[in-house]
Structures are given as structure tokens and as C-alpha cells.
């Protein structure tokens, strides 16, 4: 079976840290950072990037559209 690997890019400065992507991620790839961005929000970032499968769930629920998803078969 072909393995699917994904990767996300978060626009950190636009992220408002609402945590909706964190709870929808099926592989627990995303977490909120301990640091804050320019607005003072704990932004989302791929804490376990190797687990990402590129399912686009996080980007689909993101109210601010800050997540871009890439996926490839390896």
C-alpha cells in the first residue's frame, strides 16, 4: 500500500489560536505553540510533522484560512 505523507504550513501571524484544528487533527500532528505571535495568540504549528497524512481536516475547519496543506505518495 502506498504510504501517504502530508505537510502543513501555518501562516503564524494570522493564526488566532482557536484550537479547532488541534481537536480535528486525526493524527495529533498539530498543537498550540508555547510562544505567542504578534497578536498575542498561541499559534498552531505542526508539533509532530512526521505524523501528518495531509487529510486537510485542519485547513477545512480553520476559520481564518491560515493552513496550507501538501500531500504526496511515497
Amino acid at each position: 500500500m502506498a504510504k501517504v505523507k502530508g505537510s502543513i504550513v501555518v501562516d503564524i501571524e494570522k493564526c488566532k489560536g482557536c484550537e479547532l484544528c488541534v481537536v480535528t487533527c486525526p493524527t495529533k500532528t498539530i498543537a498550540l505553540a508555547a510562544e505567542v505571535n504578534g497578536k498575542g495568540y498561541h499559534y498552531a504549528y505542526p508539533a509532530n510533522p512526521e505524523l501528518c497524512i495531509g487529510c486537510t481536516n485542519c485547513a477545512t475547519v480553520c476559520p481564518d484560512g491560515v493552513i496550507t496543506v501538501y500531500r504526496m505518495k511515497i
Binding site: K14, K16, C18, A59, D64, G65, T68, V69, Y70
Partner: peptide, 21 residues
């Protein structure tokens, strides 16, 4: 490999809505 990016019709201005709205 791009599978999702926000629509090009959304401007660069950040939404003024509260987090999670």
C-alpha cells in the same frame, strides 16, 4: 503536492472575527 490552500478570492487582510468564529 498542494492539496489545500485558501481561495485566491480572500484578500490578505486578516479576518476581524474572534478566534474560532
Amino acid at each position: 503536492n498542494l492539496v489545500y490552500r485558501k481561495s485566491s478570492l480572500i484578500t490578505d487582510k486578516p479576518f476581524s472575527y474572534c478566534p474560532g468564529c
